[in-house]
Design a protein around this nucleic acid. Structure first.
Lengths: 203, 203
DNA sequence: ACCTGAACACCGTTCAAGT
DNA sequence: ACCTGAACACCGTTCAAGT
């Protein structure tokens, strides 16, 4: 599992094959099937092992600051390992390691005053956004994405795309992975604060 | 491209192979390479052809209602075609068809009072969240995801996961794709409303 | 009981030969 | 000029044989 995780991080998901892995370990390909029923089980084991790998920081401050720490940590982890993101989108995992972040986030939201169902919804919003940001804007692709969008917007017909034609640079700048994640997180936190101030269950 | 798109929608990305496609078309596999340099070029052609396929609805109401219509439309489209989501995450596109939604969203945000840079950030937050929701919670996977999470949370050690152990059903319920998208969208819209009410540039 | 080579049914793509 | 079969270097997995 450790070797497979290394291949995934260094060379991406497509490089992780049963034959490649067994070769690297100096064993026959079929030996792997004594430890995992099939490749999916191996991939699950990689994700599980990596999910609890970097423990989240000790939480400090009020609930919004804690959520910034939890999801900032998750986003940093995911951004550093794009292969893991692809894997977790294709095969969501439900192993104990994957729930460490969930437990922390849910505890923070419950303590902030969100009832169980509302806390679960709020967590899910933050979780899906964080994964979306990591999947859609891996840091390695950022420079290329910027220039691609800049060129594409420049080539649009101004009559059909009047708004975009006037703001190509702002659009390209919004693709910066860190800024994209951080402003999005603030938008969601603003929304959660508003819900907490508005809803009857919070009183 | 049409046939490849049909295979993608009916059987998923893994079913789209050069050999399978050429077989379906009654041609030699290598004939495809007269039309596309390689498989990536074929995949790009599929995404481009599908991007502008379903035109967004005419927009009505205030800016929050319009954003609900724009991103609800996008989310519905993506949810119906999970293969396309996987493809667009792996290879973001910048063809004119892909910018129709961007133009509509950006115009709505500019009209609401967001300056160019803030409008771009806000759009990006909504866009990334919508894609994340579609990628992470394709409707077809929902029933299975629900029971998997329910079982997994039930098996967690209550001493290590005290919060989750007490709210398994709420967590499982939060995976419902429509509900997940809609509450997340409301959270973000709440946040954007708060920013509009708070920031100096809005006055 | 444990390990694994051969085989099967697939891939994308290059190369050379066919019409 | 256009099309394509054979070949190459890969896959995951089954099955049967090896120790």
């Amino acid at each position: 599992v450790r070797t497979a995780g290394r291949i995934l991080e260094e060379e991406g998901l497509e490089a992780v094959s049963m034959r490649r892995l067994s070769g690297e370990l100096g064993a026959g390909t079929m030996t792997l099937y004594g430890h995992f029923r099939d490749k999916d089980e191996l991939l699950d084991a990689i994700v599980d092992a990596r999910a609890g790998a970097a423990p989240p920081p000790r939480l400090r401050g009020d609930w919004t600051q804690r959520l910034r720490q939890i999801f900032g940590h998750l986003h940093r982890n995911l951004s550093e390992h794009p292969g893991l993101v692809e894997l977790r989108i294709r095969r969501p995992i439900a192993t104990p390691g994957a729930f460490v972040i969930t437990e922390l986030g849910m505890r923070t939201l419950r303590d902030a005053g969100f009832p169980p169902a509302e806390a679960a919804r709020a967590f899910r919003t933050l979780f899906v956004f964080t994964f979306g940001a990591a999947a859609f804007s891996p840091p390695g692709r950022a420079p290329q994405a910027r220039s691609t969008v800049l060129a594409a917007v420049g080539a649009l017909a101004p009559e059909e795309y009047p708004t975009l034609a006037a703001m190509g640079t702002e659009l390209a700048d919004s693709l910066d992975p860190r800024g994209e994640f951080e402003t999005g997180l603030e938008h969601i936190l603003d929304g959660l604060k508003a819900a907490l101030a508005r809803e009857a269950w919070a009183r």
